[in-house]
Amino acid sequence: MKVKKSVGYTPDNQALFDLNVNYPIQTRYIMSNIQSLSSDAQRQDYLDQLESEAIYIMREVAGQFERPALLFSGGKDSITLVRLAQKAFAPGKIPFPLVHIDTGHNFPEATQYRDWMANEVGAKLIVRQVEDTIKAKGLKEPTGKNASRNWLQTFTLLDTIEEFEFDACIGGARRDEEKARAKERIFSFRDEFGQWDPKRQRPELWNLFNGKISKGENVRCFPISNWTELDVWAYIEREKIPLPSIYFSHQREMILRDGNLLANADFIYKDDSDVIVNKTVRFRTVGDMTCTAAVESEASTIEQVVAEIKATRISERGETRIDDQQTEAAMEDRKKGGYF
């Protein structure tokens, strides 16, 4: 093995790192160019940048996969995805179906909204019931206090992926939500069992997303990975996207349990320590009624909600997701098993 001259010392060396010698000029001609741009192209604000990136990802999914689907729950994050998909393929229609895995424990307001929205954007809606999977597979359902079908959704989701041979599922997960999600790639590879292997994620370089897979495998794609909760709200406000009514202040019969307020419903197990109260609340996230806590709030417009989110001192999941309060690695374990 012989040693060649050291990098960058000699001007005639055409090696890889010597470009810097006369490189800074780049920044200068770029500067002069920017000033000649007209106002609408001059500067994208930060929401434009996030939107542009998310739309790029949406189009990569549509371009790289044969049978993608968009996971749509009627929650604010997947509602944002639907808006982004509309914009990405305008004036055409969204070129993939919306899929909802219905636990049967959803807020009725969210499922109504789901149906309305799918119709509004002219997209095909596929709904699969966790109840059916439980019956067909003889799954054992968690019982007792704080029992949730959250984990069982995974079975139905994997069955649905198999049924329709989906090779990509677009999801509204954000990296700011939870520390295991903070680690996940934008194109997140799943093996034939739907599992995420956090220790062997594919390198993801620049904006070159690698969606190559073998049959039976699939990829979960997260276009709003880099958005925060506040970004989503700011975008909904800017785009004037209608939301399910539970995101705004309303009167509701609630179960007061361990300091959390849960919406009362017949299927929620209650015991003597639970107190039923009437409260003015809104929901900051929309999950299953069994594991989503409300916040007491008078905020009845999007502006008021955004103002409250700006001032809050508690994280979204910490405040509203009872399932994540249970162990430090709850999300990581669910994801390894195929959860979105």
Partner: peptide, 15 residues
């Protein structure tokens, strides 16, 4: 077009 709206010009890194 930027998401269905006509514009005169676009620059990097806009979709």
């Amino acid at each position: 077009e930027v998401y269905g709206q006509e514009v005169e010009e676009v620059s990097a890194p806009q979709s």
